[in-house]
Every structure is written in structure tokens, then in C-alpha cells.
């Protein structure tokens, strides 16, 4: 097991180095020059240019600059936002809980609906139910979620007036946010109706963001389940006299979950992509909205840091899933 872990972690290191190279070269590849991009100043005098260039370390050889960059990263220095002059890492860490909260709720929704839907479709194969589940999930999979979010707002916020259109909580509430997770903070504040307000703000973005993972999980669960239901041990369990329900929910589901776990790991990328769109539409103060605004403002240090951090999250989660997979399935860690 230790050798397997070492091998998997070792494979990630070149990818990490590559990501830092990519983020580093981003600044040098954008049109114009790096001094303007990193300082956000335009049309500066030659003296000012010299001064800034020296200050930012851009007058040194590229290789030195890269090692400096990595050195700064290792000390938690991701540069400063041109717009707010705050540290990029600090901004990221402030906004990140909002995105995590949204993504976790979206994923929970996808699992709660996707797993049973996929199981039912597999058990009732080729029935109307199966076709409906598969049809709906293919539609969900093909959905432009920015449009889906607009439709949800149109129906639930504008026409029915059930949910708010944007933000994380009603502005009437004002309490400290020690965790950054609005649901937890609202609960800890003990104010009347705070949790309900946070929940109402969360529900539409979570549906919009959870739609694609939901479709993927339902499809994957169905096909994994169909595969497992053909196995001998399922027949054995039935022959022992166990009820169909307990065979499906205990014997089959546990084995069908293995490929589903991998797919859930792969959804991290989908969730981050979706967060960019969902947060922009619902004015959700997370890293997706932050990145889009940074692009529009040409706040390149933020773009650079945001890309680096997002990629790191994807890599770490996928590594964790791989390791988990090795724990669940001994065949994997011995073969590879």
C-alpha cells in the first residue's frame, strides 16, 4: 500500500511543476508586457517602468524569475490583486468557503437524487421508468447550465416569488462569519430565520450547479449496477433467500459504488467550471465570480493565482480519489 501511495504521489509532482510553469508563463504570454500586466499601470514613463520592473523582479533572467516565483508560492505569497491590493491567496481563502459550500450542496443533491434514480433505472431495465431516467439525465448532461439557471430564476424567483435572485443571505442579517460557511455561521449566530434565509439563497444555485453531476451520477450508477447485477454473487445472494431489496441495496450497491466514486472525483472539475457560470449569474461571492471579474478587469495576478489554486484542488482531489480507490479495491494497488 505504501509503495502504491508513493507511486501515485510521485506521478503528481511533474504535474504540479507543470502547473506552476503554466501559471508563471501566463504573465509572459499575454499581449503587452509583464510589467504592465502585473502592476496594472499603463503608459508609464521609462523611469517608472525601470523602477517597477526592478521592484517586480522582471529585469532578471527568466529562470531566476521562475525560481523566485515558486519560492514566493512556497511562502504563501501569490502576488497582489491590482484591483484591491490585497494578497491573492488571502482573497482566495476568503472566498473559497462560499464556493465549497455551494459545490458540496450541489454534489449532495446530485448524489441524493442520482444514486436512487440510477439504481431504479437499472433494476427496472427497459421500463418506462428506465427510459425516463435516461432521457432526463441525457438532457441534464446536455444542459447549458447558465441558461438553466436563468430559467430557474424565471420560474422560482420571478414568477412564483419563492426564492431570492442573488447573494448568500438576506441583507437584514448581520453576524460574524468565523467559518465562511453561511449555513454554519447562520446556525451559530442563533438569529431567528437566518438558517432558513441562507438555505433559500442556496437552493437555486445548488440545483443549477448540481444538474450535470446529477446526470452523470445517474448514468454511471445505472451502468455500474447493470454490470454488477449480472454477477454470480448476486444470484447466490438471491438463492440464499435474501429479499431482492436487500440484495440490490447491500450486495450490489456496495460493488457498484466503486466506479461511481471515481466519477464523483472527476466531478470536481465540472463543479469548478459550473461554479464560474453559476456564481456569475447568482452573484454568489465565490472564486468563480472572482475569476471572471478578474479577467474582465485584466487583474492578471488574480487570474494567475486563481488558475493555480483551482488546478491544485483538482489534482489533490483526484489523487485522494485514486488513493481511496486503492483502499477499496485491492486489485488496483497490486496491479499498477
Amino acid at each position: 500500500m505504501l509503495a502504491y501511495v508513493a507511486k501515485r504521489v510521485g506521478m503528481v509532482i511533474p504535474t504540479f511543476i507543470g502547473i506552476t510553469l503554466l501559471a508563471f508563463s501566463l504573465i509572459h504570454m499575454i499581449p503587452g508586457n509583464a510589467v504592465e500586466a502585473l502592476s496594472g499601470e499603463r503608459g508609464m514613463s521609462p523611469e517608472r517602468y525601470q523602477q517597477l520592473s526592478h521592484q517586480l523582479g522582471l529585469d532578471r533572467p527568466l529562470r531566476t524569475q521562475y525560481f523566485d516565483y515558486v519560492g514566493h508560492l512556497l511562502h504563501g505569497d501569490f502576488g497582489r490583486s491590482i484591483n484591491t491590493h490585497d494578497g491573492v491567496l488571502q482573497e482566495f481563502l476568503t472566498l473559497f468557503p462560499a464556493t465549497v459550500e455551494l459545490a458540496l450542496c450541489a454534489l449532495a443533491l446530485a448524489l441524493l437524487l442520482g444514486l436512487p434514480a440510477g439504481m431504479l433505472a437499472a433494476v427496472k431495465r427497459n421500463s418506462v421508468l428506465d427510459y425516463s431516467v435516461m432521457g432526463v439525465s441525457l438532457t441534464g448532461y446536455s444542459m447549458p447550465i447558465f441558461w438553466w439557471a436563468l430559467l430557474l430564476i424565471q420560474l422560482f424567483s420571478v414568477t412564483l416569488g419563492w426564492t431570492p435572485v442573488s447573494g448568500r443571505i438576506d441583507i437584514a442579517f448581520d453576524f460574524p462569519a468565523p467559518t465562511g460557511f453561511m449555513l454554519i455561521d447562520a446556525w451559530m449566530s442563533g438569529e431567528d430565520g437566518a438558517v432558513a434565509s441562507a438555505l433559500w439563497h442556496l437552493i437555486l444555485p445548488a440545483i443549477a450547479l448540481g444538474t450535470i453531476p446529477l446526470a452523470v451520477i445517474a448514468r454511471m450508477t445505472r451502468s455500474a449496477m447493470l454490470e454488477v447485477l449480472r454477477e454470480d454473487y448476486v444470484r447466490t445472494a438471491r438463492a440464499k433467500g435474501l429479499s431482492w431489496f436487500s440484495v440490490v441495496c447491500v450486495h450490489a450497491l456496495r460493488n457498484a459504488l466503486i466506479p461511481v466514486i471515481t466519477v464523483i472525483g472527476l466531478q470536481v472539475g465540472t463543479l469548478l467550471t459550473g461554479a464560474i457560470l453559476t456564481e456569475t449569474i447568482f452573484s454568489w461571492p465565490g472564486i468563480g465570480k472572482w475569476l471572471v471579474e478578474a479577467i474582465h478587469r485584466r487583474d492578471y495576478p488574480v487570474v494567475q493565482g486563481g488558475i493555480l489554486m483551482s488546478a491544485t484542488i483538482v489534482i489533490v482531489v483526484n489523487l485522494a480519489v485514486d488513493l481511496l480507490y486503492g483502499v477499496v479495491n485491492p486489485r488496483i494497488r497490486h496491479n499498477s
Binding site: P14, T15, G18, I19, L22, L26, M29, I30, P31, V268, G269, T270, L272, T273, I276, L277, L291, V292, I295, Y300, V303, I307, S310, A311, V314, I315, N318
Partner: peptide, 24 residues
């Protein structure tokens, strides 16, 4: 293949945004 791993590590829209940031 390592280069492809790096590209796969970036969420699709984020990678596209990075390219658009460079090219305009």
C-alpha cells in the same frame, strides 16, 4: 502525456478562460 495531464488538471472552462486571457 504529462503535458496532457496538466491540461486535464484544469477545469475545461478555466483552461479556456486562461487561453482567452492570453489571446484576448
Amino acid at each position: 502525456m504529462r503535458l496532457m495531464d496538466i491540461m486535464l488538471a484544469l477545469p475545461s472552462l478555466l483552461l479556456a478562460i486562461a487561453v482567452v486571457a492570453i489571446l484576448g
